[in-house]
């Protein structure tokens, strides 16, 4: 009984501390933002003396010296996990290159796609990079960098299927929840014709089992899916073409400018193209 009482006391204390810490966090985040501006903005400038060139201006990150990227690492070849628990993919490598330019250490938080978008908006990550496309609704809640890659939404069907772009409206379309493919399809064909899955692989799995008639998804992952699963093919005509950008919290112009400058340099150096070529091999 004594042991029980002790345990209870410890737990109650823990809970209290936890709650207080959380409140403290919230409070400081709101009240200390201005002062943080000053301190962190000097930090990258100082470390920039090292390798990178160019001027990235004044910017702030949530944690000093760290660039936190939220993503949904189930979107090959843009982002996926590796067996040793780290991440790889086009977005991951570009983010890594940007972080190096800015003199920051890249940290990745992997979660659901919608949660990844929310994390950047609510100041829990510095940026969201998850094959995010810019659209008006998203512009209303967050700011976006310049385009770093072009995503092409294609249609995966079973070999020998009679699905075409023209009769897409009569099919049940599998999509990944929260992606632009999902938005386009549900806007154009209505929710009755769209089945949204947590990730692209599940959607493709559903196609294999004839639970959906086709899958609308980004070309990059689509090509990998088709090469890995027999009996699937991609329709020749593209469904939509869209631009991928990096999302940051609204009003964080310092960071946005720094990212854009870094992107421009990486593009000029041909680094971005080489990263994309590494993952998407032209056949």
């Amino acid at each position: 009984m004594k042991a029980m009482k002790k345990l209870l006391a410890v737990l109650l204390t823990l809970g209290l501390v936890f709650a207080l810490a959380a409140c403290g966090n919230n409070g400081s985040e709101n009240s200390q933002t201005p002062s943080q501006d000053v301190t962190t903005s000097e930090e990258p400038a100082a470390s920039n003396e090292g390798g990178s060139t160019g001027d990235y201006g004044e910017f702030t990150t949530i944690e000093e010296g760290v660039l936190i990227m939220s993503t949904n690492a189930a979107f090959p070849p843009y982002e996926m996990t590796t067996d040793d628990g780290s991440y790889e993919g086009i977005d991951v490598e570009i983010a890594q290159a940007i972080a190096e330019k800015l003199g920051l250490e890249l940290q990745i938080d992997n979660m659901e796609f919608t949660a990844a978008l929310e994390a950047a908006q609510s100041g829990m990550s510095d940026m969201v990079m998850a094959g995010v496309t810019v659209n008006e609704d998203r512009l209303a809640v967050m700011d976006f960098s310049n385009t770093y890659a072009t995503g092409i939404q294609v249609v995966i069907v079973k070999e020998g299927s009679d699905v075409t772009l023209d009769n897409l409206g009569e099919q049940l379309i599998g999509v990944q929840n929260g992606t632009t493919g999902w938005q386009f399809c549900s806007d154009q064909f209505g929710d009755d014709h769209v089945s949204a899955f947590d990730n692209g692989i599940t959607a493709v799995q559903a196609l294999m089992q004839d639970q959906v008639d086709c899958v609308v998804i980004d070309q990059g992952p689509a090509e990998v899916f088709v090469s890995e699963n027999e009996g699937l093919t991609i329709l020749e005509t593209e469904y939509a073409v869209e631009d991928y950008a990096i999302g940051v919290a609204k009003g964080n112009e310092g960071l946005l400018n720094a990212i854009n400058t870094a992107l421009a340099e990486l593009q000029a150096d041909g680094i971005i193209q080489s990263i994309i070529d590494k993952y998407i091999t032209a056949e």
Binding site: E29, A115, E118
Partner: peptide, 13 residues
Amino acid sequence: LIWAFVVFKSRQY
């Protein structure tokens, strides 16, 4: 989602 993104806003997910 609410605990993570609205209340705590901590990366200790």
